[in-house]
Amino acid sequence: MSARSYSPPYRRALGYAGLILMAAIFIFPFVFSVANSFKSDAQATNDAINLVPHPASLAAWRQIFGYGPAAATTNFPLWLFNSVFLSVCITVGRVFLDSLAGYSLARLRFRGRKLIFGFIIGTLAVPSVVLMIPTFLILKQFGIFNSYEAMILPMLVDVTGIFLMRQFFLQVPDALEEAGRVDGANIWQIYWRLILPVVRPGLVALTIISFQASWNQFMFYLVATVSPKYFTLVTGLANIVGGGLSAGNQYPLKLGASVLTILPMVIMFVVLQRYFVRGGTAGSVKG
């Protein structure tokens, strides 16, 4: 054992104290949300700090799952469906198209590649918030505003994903492609059968990043649609908090809806934590 693995007990205690205090700060907002979603509106408003609902009320959760006096403005089953549907479409699109583009930039030589590479880097300079109003304009101009297409098409490719995949493809040994070529496979077959299976870690990271981004997406869904039938959990939640509810604070309902929005990401995170952590430090290039 080296000298540095010894540390005095007080330092150890201090370390744990710090960790536990910080963990409390990071976890308690979620704990309070869950606890208060099981209270009545009055309780949640006036007795927020109490972690044990007494008496417990299921009213908020009944409404979330479509029972009880559902306000016309809440349709959680539909929102859940939209969230899942859009996230799946966008994730599949991104994983497929980003890796195709990444492969092209990493491994294929063709006239104009440098130019395209520069162009794609250039689009990164545009902050997404600057695209908010322009995206609405272009959707109006194309006549697809307020549709699923309007929500999916602009999100279908993301430049970070392209560069992430490019980095992975750059690491693939050339021998693999050569072997495929010797066997007489064309470029598509080489890509699809030989190369893609090798970059699976990249595909997993990209899948997670894309699913998370589309699940949590707010701004672009907001400007792409106007009808409540296109609400996702996120945009629907923003709508009820922004005054879409008829009366009262309705804190339990808002908190329950927040918990429901967050929960799938938390489950995904807990199950796939190592990929999240990798994805979190993977997605980019030096340039």
Binding site: V130, T135, G161, I209, F218
Partner: peptide, 21 residues
């Protein structure tokens, strides 16, 4: 590079995912 949560461009809505370089 920053992951984009929107069309194409680099975005990083605060509190969103960040990719490292």
């Amino acid at each position: 590079l920053v992951p984009s949560d929107g069309p194409g461009g680099a975005s990083l809505a605060a509190g969103q995912h960040v990719a490292a370089p």
